[in-house]
């Protein structure tokens, strides 16, 4: 069997006395969409932060694309092909939508010690950015200030920024949180088109979205992954139902 795209062993992180992640083992296969579900406070966002390189683990190792990335920070992991969206929308609000994506392109086009040519006139930054923006359905909104985009559009913009870095792995932290029904459907459709093209780790509370998108699901409770399996297996797992799905009631 091929090596997983990202393989996590014994990853732990404590904040004071709280064990946010507790000896987490996780394998995400190349090409799959792997959802991580669990109650609030289970450590899902901490895990995403550790995978992205924003949080240093107290213990454990992370291998990505065949190399040990445990000691690499977020910018270095980004350059290896790891992209993320944040739980709380994180964009450059005072830049246009196109600027936001062009910055992501720029971050992956060598060093930025260029002092003379206006970056906004560089076709090698603007054209790929515009293409990605069109791909997520924001082509007509390119010149709008990111702060003035609707919430759902800002989440789409985050996906566009992530895609512009040509990632191998996309870490999505609650991409449909706070969205209305229509916006949620649009986002789920967008993510469906991304599946297969890119490996996705998806943290999400919206169970419809999770069961529509995920190939496999891991369930996280109290900082530990208590089960991993196909959507059917997880749905049928008694321990999971008890811990999270709440026995019959819809979440």
């Amino acid at each position: 069997m091929a090596e997983p795209l990202i393989a996590v062993r014994g990853l732990s992180k404590s904040f004071g006395g709280l064990r946010a992640t507790d000896r987490v083992d996780l394998d995400v296969e190349d090409g799959e969409t792997h959802a991580i579900i669990g109650p609030n406070g289970a450590g899902k966002t901490t895990l995403i932060g550790q995978l992205a390189g924003d949080l240093r683990p107290d213990a454990g190792t992370t291998r990505f694309a065949g190399r040990d990335v445990t000691s690499l920070d977020a910018p270095a992991r980004s350059r290896l092909g790891l992209a993320r969206s944040f739980q709380i929308t994180s964009i450059f609000p005072d830049f246009s939508a196109l600027d936001n994506v062009a910055l992501a392109v720029q971050a992956h086009s060598g060093h930025s010690f260029h002092f003379w040519r206006p970056a906004r006139a560089e076709r090698e930054l603007r054209e790929p950015a515009l293409a990605v923006l069109g791909g997520v359905g924001l082509g007509a909104r390119a010149d709008v200030l990111a702060a003035n985009l609707a919430h759902g559009e800002q989440r789409q913009l985050e996906i566009a920024m992530a895609l512009a870095t040509r990632p191998r792995l996309l870490l999505l932290d609650e991409p449909v949180a706070g969205m209305g029904l229509e916006e949620t459907q649009r986002m789920v459709r967008l993510l469906s088109t991304l599946k297969r093209r890119v490996t996705i780790v998806l943290v999400e509370h919206d169970m419809d979205a999770v069961f529509t998108l995920a190939d496999r699901i891991s369930v996280m409770v109290y900082g530990r992954i208590i089960a991993t399996g196909s959507p059917e297996e997880v749905r049928g797992n008694a321990e999971v139902r008890r811990a999270y799905l709440g026995e019959g009631t819809e979440s």
């Binding site: 992956h108 930025s112 003379w116």
Partner: peptide
């Protein structure tokens, strides 16, 4: 020239949202 060039865009993006700038690959 400097603030509109790539160099300027990096420091401006970091001022705007440093975690985001790091996440897209800027150090």
């Amino acid at each position: 020239r400097l603030v509109d060039a790539r160099f300027g865009m990096v420091i401006r993006s970091a001022r705007s949202n440093e975690p985001r700038a790091r996440a897209i690959g800027f150090a």
